[in-house]
Design a protein around this nucleic acid. Structure first.
Length: 195
DNA sequence: GCCAACGTTGGC
DNA sequence: GCCAACGTTGGC
């Protein structure tokens, strides 16, 4: 399966002029995403994908409208996928790095996390020499398209809503997999209907 | 473990 | 293309 938005690990290169860093701001832990669930509780998430790499339309064309959400190479995103996402959870599909970024569709988790085989494939862009079959590092889930937004909800609109000001999408920098609260989910699906 | 120096993401 | 805000690497 093609690359989504990866937060892949960086590769080292040459050195040059010094740069200043800002002091680290306090970070929220997002533990609620991993908290024990009520029986039958469904949770909500958001995944990013660059539409010129893998769009929601591409997902709709896949067999069973289902794909492996592989290639995620960021530990925080991995933890949300591996430890947070459960069967039946709903997931916003977000188009990033495009002229009109925003939420374009809804998916369902149809398989919980399992090791991403690309980490063991030396020919893959997602190969990780530290990973082994016995001790995999990276995981993927399977997502199936459930519905396409009739009206995509643009990031510019999301930013205007007070109820959405704490969204992980806006708060956690550039993370490709983030939790969504039930309230946030309802606000955004409502926006999609009314746009 | 600290922290400078990278590389990457992604909105604009 | 710019650059803020991340994450990672590696010397110490």
């Amino acid at each position: 399966m093609a690359t989504k938005s990866t937060n892949r690990k960086s590769k080292s290169g040459k050195r040059s002029a010094p740069k200043k860093r800002q002091p680290a701001p306090k970070k929220k832990s997002w533990t609620a995403a991993f908290a024990p669930r009520e029986f039958g509780e469904r949770r909500y998430w958001l995944v990013k994908s660059e539409p010129n790499v893998f769009s929601f339309d591409d997902l709709l064309r896949k067999h069973n409208k289902t794909t492996h959400w592989d290639g995620v190479r960021n530990f925080v995103a991995r933890n949300f996928m591996r430890d947070g996402m459960k069967l039946g959870d709903r997931v916003f599909f977000y188009h990033s790095s495009t002229g009109d970024p925003g939420v374009v569709g809804i998916c369902e988790v149809v398989r919980e996390a399992c090791p991403d085989p690309a980490q063991l494939d030396a020919a893959s862009d997602y190969f990780d020499k530290k990973a082994t079959k016995e001790k995999p590092i990276w995981y993927m889930v399977d997502l199936r398209a459930v519905a396409q937004m009739t009206h995509p909800v643009p990031l510019t609109q999301i930013k205007t809503r007070r109820e959405l000001r704490h969204m992980a999408l806006l708060r956690i920098g550039r993370l490709s997999v983030t939790p969504v609260s039930l309230t946030e989910w309802n606000v955004i699906t409502q926006m999609a209907e009314n746009l």
